[in-house]
Structure formats: structure tokens, C-alpha cells
């Protein structure tokens, strides 16, 4: 094993509409950079290998697992996280629907589901149940059994 040190990388990116610059080790995931460097802890770590979707963020208009993105890959890109969903005027319709439909219990998967569901509704405002279930297949929830989540997304779509 080599012992040479690896220099930190300067990353310039836009997070939730705000330009940001930070220094990270080149092997750090975008998830860890968001949580530990930028201080946005709304994005959650679940499996850390791309199975559970808890770390879902929007990267240049596509939802991705931020655990499988290296932080330097965000250079020049736009990242949108759960922290960017609500506005000073109120909750995003999806957040409101999740509350009303009780689409969460422990809540660890919720930011990922919300960001993923937003990625769907932003492009397809009126998906059917099958489409919603298919789209959210990359997000795992061990509490709700998914039905409430699907209903909440349907409700938000109609809102």
C-alpha cells in the first residue's frame, strides 16, 4: 500500500440555487460532502451502495444516489437537495401531501422519497400508480409498506 497523501480538491457548485465552493478529499462522496462539509444533513445515508435511495438528490435535473457520486463530480453542476424543497411561503405540495397522508413513520427514507418524487412530478405532472411505483423502486422504506407514499404522491400530483 502506498502512503502518499492525496490533495483536497476545490469544488464550485450550485446547491439549492446558491453558489458554493468547498474543499474535499477527491474520494469523498457528494453525500458526505453535503452532510459533513456543507452542513446540509437533510440528505440521509442509508446503505451507502446505491440500493436504498435515502441519499437521493437532484443533479442537473436527474435524480441520483449521492452516495455514488464523487463530490468533485459536482463541479459546475446544480445540486438540489431536500433543503431546497420548501420555500419561505410554505411546504412543497409533496411535503404537505406526505404529512396529510402519513406517508412516513421513522422518516429516514423521507427526504430521498420526496426528492425522487419531485423529480417525477417536475417532468410528468400526472403519473399513474404504476408509474409512481416504478419510479420510486430505487427508494426503500421499511415502515410504511409504500401504499401511503404512493397515495401521497398521487395527491400531490392532483394538488
Amino acid at each position: 500500500m502506498t502512503t502518499k497523501t492525496v490533495r483536497n480538491v476545490h469544488v464550485r457548485t450550485t446547491i439549492n440555487g446558491q453558489e458554493m465552493e468547498f474543499l474535499v478529499p477527491p474520494y469523498m462522496s457528494l453525500l458526505d460532502a453535503l452532510r459533513e462539509v456543507v452542513g446540509l444533513t437533510g440528505t440521509k445515508e442509508g446503505c451507502n451502495d446505491g440500493n436504498c435511495g435515502a441519499c437521493t438528490v437532484d443533479l442537473d435535473g436527474r435524480i441520483v444516489d449521492s452516495c455514488l457520486v464523487l463530490a468533485p463530480e459536482a463541479e459546475g453542476k446544480e445540486v438540489n437537495t431536500i433543503e431546497g424543497m420548501a420555500t419561505p411561503q410554505g411546504l412543497h405540495p409533496l411535503q404537505q401531501a406526505f404529512l396529510e397522508e402519513a406517508a412516513l413513520q421513522c422518516g429516514i427514507c423521507t427526504p430521498g422519497f420526496l426528492v425522487a418524487a419531485k423529480g417525477l412530478l417536475d417532468n410528468e405532472p400526472d403519473p399513474d400508480e404504476h408509474r409512481i411505483r416504478h419510479w420510486l423502486a430505487g427508494n426503500l422504506c421499511r415502515c410504511t409498506g409504500y401504499d401511503k407514499i404512493v397515495r401521497a404522491v398521487e395527491k400531490a400530483a392532483k394538488a
Binding site: G50, G53, I63, V64, D65, V69, W135, A137, G138
Partner: peptide, 9 residues
């Protein structure tokens, strides 16, 4: 292959 998040990458 994978879910939507994986297919993005």
C-alpha cells in the same frame, strides 16, 4: 438496470 437513480448515471 437498477432504479431511476442508477439509470441516471
Amino acid at each position: 438496470i437498477g432504479g431511476i437513480q442508477i439509470q441516471s448515471r
